[in-house]
Design a protein around this nucleic acid. Sequence first.
DNA 1: GACTGAGTAGACCTGTCTGTCTAGTATGGG
DNA 2: CCCATACTAGACAGACAGGTCTACTCAGTC
Lengths: 201, 201
Amino acid sequence: MMAIEETSGGRPSARERLLAAANELFYNEGVHTVGIDRIIEHAGVAKASLYNTFGSKDELVRAYLEARQANVEQRIMQAVERYDTPRERLLAVFEGQGDLFAQPDYRGCAFVRASAESQPGDLTEQASDAYRGWVRALLTELASQAGVPEPENLARQLHLLYDGSGQSARMDHDPGVAAHAREVAAILLDAATRPAGLASR
Amino acid sequence: MMAIEETSGGRPSARERLLAAANELFYNEGVHTVGIDRIIEHAGVAKASLYNTFGSKDELVRAYLEARQANVEQRIMQAVERYDTPRERLLAVFEGQGDLFAQPDYRGCAFVRASAESQPGDLTEQASDAYRGWVRALLTELASQAGVPEPENLARQLHLLYDGSGQSARMDHDPGVAAHAREVAAILLDAATRPAGLASR
DNA sequence: GACTGAGTAGACCTGTCTGTCTAGTATGGG
DNA sequence: CCCATACTAGACAGACAGGTCTACTCAGTC
């Protein structure tokens, strides 16, 4: 039996190097802009290896997005698990986003970027939908655990905020938006918990 | 003297037809994906006309984004001016967004889309920054008129929401998010107006 | 009737794109 | 020693990119 990926020691496999190159180039410069030749050059890999491993550029893009999603999920869950109270755990989602924004050369949500270049029905759209589904489910679950009467409603509001946070961080080149997003989330959480009718129309 | 653009009656000028084609194709399929040939074919215009009028594809893209911004500004101001009270006028910004989302084939903010395909320092980035500046200034002004103690702060929060609203509307294919965004905006406006300290930390 | 400005049609140049294909190398298990 | 596996190097094909250029048409003006 042979390991498919050489994760410990030694030189990384062609697959790993391709994914690393895809992550760097696709994310920074755009899926469409970056050609196969630049990917394989950056990965130090032969063209045939790419096509043997992934079959097409589209499939490489899909694999890139899947890896990206796994990475984001991990970061956000790390942030959530730093806390114990349901309230803090819910708000921690936005701290997790902040960790992402703080990375040097953050260029916005990879799914937004890829999706802007995609055609309807593309593999990219499926990947985006999967990612959004995960975010929504997490927010709903955490809202529910926080004892909010209508968790789906709060989750929808927070998803708006989550989207906006990533967008603003990119467009304004300001990782600090995550902190503002957390503040807004706290206000929304309070408003969802408080008995209705207090807010004027 | 001769009119540069044939706005009334008659056949639209080559410039107008090119802008219309750019608006449709660039917006729906992406700036990078759509080639010059498809633009001129769709516009029913000779290639030389494009290059005589705009000089390059990049400049056509810039003109397309400028037209787009003018259109958005007009729609949002229309919505704002439907109301008299400062509070309603502020919230109307999100109604204006809703008018945009309700257009058939809404595919998200054109600046987000274009910016995802752009390189740093591009003409597209300049156009995006100009657009964001306008939004922020409008929100700040309306917040100020609504008597909020710290208008810049509320404007920043609402800009988050504004970004998220456009994003969610696209990704979830649901124009209804604008209504939710308006609700959230109302909550934030109330929170900004109320004396601080009520919100738990 | 000559001239000008705006536009058309389309060949053409150069470069790049994704994807295929051939030929060869290094390594490790049986 | 043999042979499969994983990979490399690079030529090549066919499509398409943005952009240039020539030659032509047509409407209105002096």
